[in-house]
């Protein structure tokens, strides 16, 4: 019996690690995608878009497998709900990363030069928030005392992203370089979309903090 438990546990541990790797990668591709688009590197952007779409489907598939294994073999009955809750909210991060890149691909926004750096910085901060929240999720599984450290970092990056987003929107609306109102609104829309990645990361971090308290013995 212990061997069966252990091999199944090890397999599932591997799947969870796999899933978390996918979430980290989605944050990285998201950042690279935005950067490529803003800098006008179309080929690289299209590759990033293709990669993130494939990654999103893979992540969904892995998450479904984990859910199935956890319920079929009655593993971690006490924290099963929390683990699935965590994986599902992490999935929201992958989804939004993919959606933002997709929106860039569909709407092809015209980014003026004076906003380019801010867009790239905003994407970088959001991507860092994703990275830290995934580190927090790993700590939830292995080193519960470290979770709050990562949660704090997510809060920090989310706040920084908020500031950059606000700055970006102010510039879009106050500078005379953008003449049409629709263009200003379009810039605001994309700033909000990119910042939403850090917002979702923060929501996951909030949950993570609660789950970590529950898991302390």
């Amino acid at each position: 019996m212990p061997n069966i438990f252990n091999s199944r546990s090890k397999q599932l541990e591997g799947e969870i690690e796999n899933y978390l790797d996918r979430v980290t990668t989605s944050g990285l591709i998201f950042y690279e995608g935005v950067k490529a688009y803003v800098r006008g590197n179309k080929t690289k952007f299209e590759k990033n878009f293709k990669d993130i779409t494939a990654l999103e489907s893979e992540a969904d598939e892995i998450r479904r497998n984990i859910k199935h294994t956890l319920y079929t073999f009655m593993l971690i009955p006490e924290s099963r709900g929390d683990v699935l809750g965590l994986l599902e909210t992490l999935d929201d991060i992958v989804d939004i990363c993919e959606k933002v890149i997709e929106q860039f691909s569909i709407e092809t926004p015209d980014i003026p030069d004076f906003l380019k750096n801010d867009f790239i910085e905003l994407a970088e901060l959001s991507s860092k928030a994703v990275d830290e929240v995934v580190k927090g999720a790993r700590a939830f599984f292995r080193e519960i005392s470290m979770v709050s450290n990562y949660v704090n970092k997510v809060h920090f990056y989310e706040q920084e992203a908020d500031d950059t987003e606000e700055n970006l929107k102010r510039m879009a609306f106050h500078r005379k370089d953008i003449t049409s109102f629709s263009h200003k609104v379009h810039m605001r829309y994309f700033a909000e979309k990119i910042a939403a990645v850090s917002d979702v990361s923060e929501q996951v971090a909030e949950r993570l903090a609660v789950y970590a308290i529950k898991r302390r013995i």
Binding site: P2, F5, N6, S9, L12, E13, L75, I76, F141
Partner: peptide, 11 residues
């Protein structure tokens, strides 16, 4: 790992 702790706890 949480999962391994779970199986050790069962044993």
């Amino acid at each position: 790992h949480l999962l391994r702790l779970d199986s050790y706890t069962r044993i």
